[in-house]
């Protein structure tokens, strides 16, 4: 699998491109991305926030990541491998969904609503958590979901279904969210 990281060297944050490539390779294999997929990780190192955006174009996945997304929240500008794994797991599961014809046509990233992002993220992180056997921060994902879908029992039920599901289509995700 062809994986590249930009920039080739970090000057502001204490991250190593080789380490990010290694983590991305492991996570991509775990998620089950085919070997012919090309992955590009672009890290905006001078940005302490954690926004991410992914573009899937043919067999190419380009992830634009604000540097804070990979940061250790306890140590400024230090790399957190656990955080990087979770972020890449979430993004690569979503990319794998887009590459899977059975998943259906989801809107482009920029056209997704915050509520749709939260739902798809819950589905992606839930799967990654089970597959990797790690604590994926279910509580904070639930909170992020509630902000977009409401603080209600119905919203919690929708989150639980997304978190524990596998093999969903885009239509399934929309349907679960509409039941809240």
């Amino acid at each position: 699998m062809n994986i590249t990281v930009d920039p080739p060297a970090f000057l502001i944050v204490d991250y190593e491109p080789e380490r990010i490539v290694a983590v991305a390779r492991e996570v991509a294999a775990l998620v089950g991305l085919p070997d012919d997929v090309r992955i590009e990780v672009v890290v905006e190192e001078d940005n302490p926030f954690g926004k991410t955006a992914t573009v899937v174009d043919g067999r190419s996945v380009r992830m634009a990541i604000e540097g804070g997304a990979f940061e250790d929240p306890q140590q400024l500008r230090q790399f957190s491998e656990a955080n990087a794994r979770l972020v890449l797991g979430r993004l690569l599961f979503r990319a794998a969904d887009r590459l899977n014809p059975a998943f259906g046509d989801a809107p482009l990233e920029g056209d997704l609503t915050p509520a749709e992002h939260a739902a798809w993220d819950a589905y992606a992180v839930g799967r990654y958590t089970r597959l990797a056997g790690v604590d994926g921060g279910m509580g904070r994902r639930r909170y992020a979901f509630r902000i977009r879908h409401g603080f209600s029992d119905a919203a919690d039920r929708a989150f639980d279904r997304l978190w524990s599901a596998s093999g969903l289509t885009w239509a399934d995700i929309q349907s679960i969210c509409s039941l809240r």
């Binding site: 940005n47 926030f49 915050p114 909170y143 992020a144």
Partner: peptide, 21 residues
Amino acid sequence: SGRRGGKLTPDRPDAAHAARQ
């Protein structure tokens, strides 16, 4: 020259993380 987080509102993409922090 860098992006600012902005007022803490649910409209922020990172609203949940910023509120938790």
